[in-house]
Design a protein around this nucleic acid. Structure first.
Lengths: 226, 226
DNA sequence: ATAATTAATATTGTATACAATTTATATCAT
DNA sequence: ATGATATAAATTGTATACAATATTAATTAT
């Protein structure tokens, strides 16, 4: 896949490499535990090792890549403990986001968020799961941005990337339709300017989501690993 | 194993450079908004630019360093909005840590945590503020580790480094003695295996701390900037 | 044939070299 | 002197070269 980047030569190469490796990991092109040899990656993206190494340093901080002493980089492996620990963090962070959003929401934000919920329901009816996930993601992202807390926005974005790895594996296994109703309730709390309810509902919502992911992950293990 | 290692070059150089730059930023040796020229840093640590660049990539992810398009790296500036946004995150993250700690605490952990509180009070009596800060930090760190949540541990460590920058500036301006009592209360809730109280008390404690930092930061601005 | 030792290879970690671009300085025309 | 233009220096971004170490293959001794 060496022809990955012919066009946009505007930005930095290490930035592009960073994004590309990240995507490859998230989408599973690079498998968990796979060793990441620098020369191979460099060839893959048709660059030298320098941008690759810098990209790997950034990915390490995002827990997508793990460095072992003098062996080098590996794709961080997936397991129940990791996803659980991440989700616990996500729960309180997005809970905070919902709380803050309730202080900042405006008419137009409300319409936007309503739209996402409506669309995700429609796409679900139509069986277009990919679009459902996208609209749901937008719903969450919008709320996080409404928090107007830069540190929070960065942290959640971080966490979201990690979670996406698991979601891609498990998305084929059923969908939690109750989630739509929970989104409704969260939005009403935010729009009703009730920060505490918004926080609590969001935390619960994400905890429910974790349960769904975990059962999906277990099925996955049963079907493919054993 | 043979000693007489020239420059204790056991670990990687980019790791050392990373730690060194980080420390320099936290301690204010490198000032906020100061431009970080790669050659200068390389000379500073007697290396080439390569390890410096890799270190900077990691620091960027920790928000200690900011990259501007083709200008390069700068030390991220300090301001009220940033510290507030970070503290809001810290509040919910350490709140979660306290909650989880209440599920995992053992006798020995309790004794350890009590010890830290006792020592910090003693050092305060003795006027040794540096040691007070150290023991307080250990108190918080221990609780976070008790959460047994790896993602949480990493995130909080992250956040703690950033906060340290502000604490160093403001530590000279008074100390919030009420904090000791709050630590007592938190520890009792954790040891009493009351996760919800532990979480709530920790969140409040950190919010109080923010107010103290902010007033310190304002004094600082008044005294030095204007 | 097996274990131990040695040679070859691969891979990471670091330094240097080069290209592109920006920034600062100097030169010149008016 | 002033402003414009050209020249030099500095700085980032990328590629390559080299050194140290770990891994693998080959060779030898038993």
């Amino acid at each position: 896949m060496g022809e990955a980047m012919k066009n946009d030569k505007k930005s930095n190469l290490y930035e592009q490499v960073y994004v590309s490796i990240k995507e490859a990991i998230v989408k599973g092109v690079l498998s968990p535990n796979e060793r990441l040899r620098e020369v191979r990656l460099a060839e893959m993206f048709d660059t030298s090792r320098t941008p690759v190494r810098e990209a790997l340093r950034k990915l390490e901080k995002e827990r997508l890549v793990t460095f072992e002493p003098s062996i080098g980089a590996k794709v961080t492996e997936l397991n129940d403990e990791t996803i659980t620990s991440i989700y616990e963090c996500r729960s309180v962070l997005e809970g905070l986001a919902a709380k803050k959003a309730a202080l900042h929401i405006r008419q137009e934000d409300y319409y936007q968020l309503s739209e996402y919920i409506i669309l995700s329901r429609q796409y679900f009816q139509a069986g277009n799961i990919e679009q459902v996930v996208e609209k749901n993601t937008l719903f969450h992202e919008t709320i996080v941005k409404l928090s107007r807390n830069p540190a929070l926005i960065q942290m959640v974005e971080h966490v979201r990337t990690e979670i996406l790895r698991y979601r891609i594996i498990t998305s084929s296994f059923g969908f939690r339709t109750r989630g739509f109703d929970e989104h409704d309730a969260i939005l009403e709390a935010i729009n009703g300017q009730d920060p505490d309810s918004a926080e609590e509902l969001m935390k619960k919502h994400i905890q429910e989501d974790l349960q769904n992911i975990l059962s999906g992950l277990n099925q996955y293990s049963v079907n493919f690993n054993c």
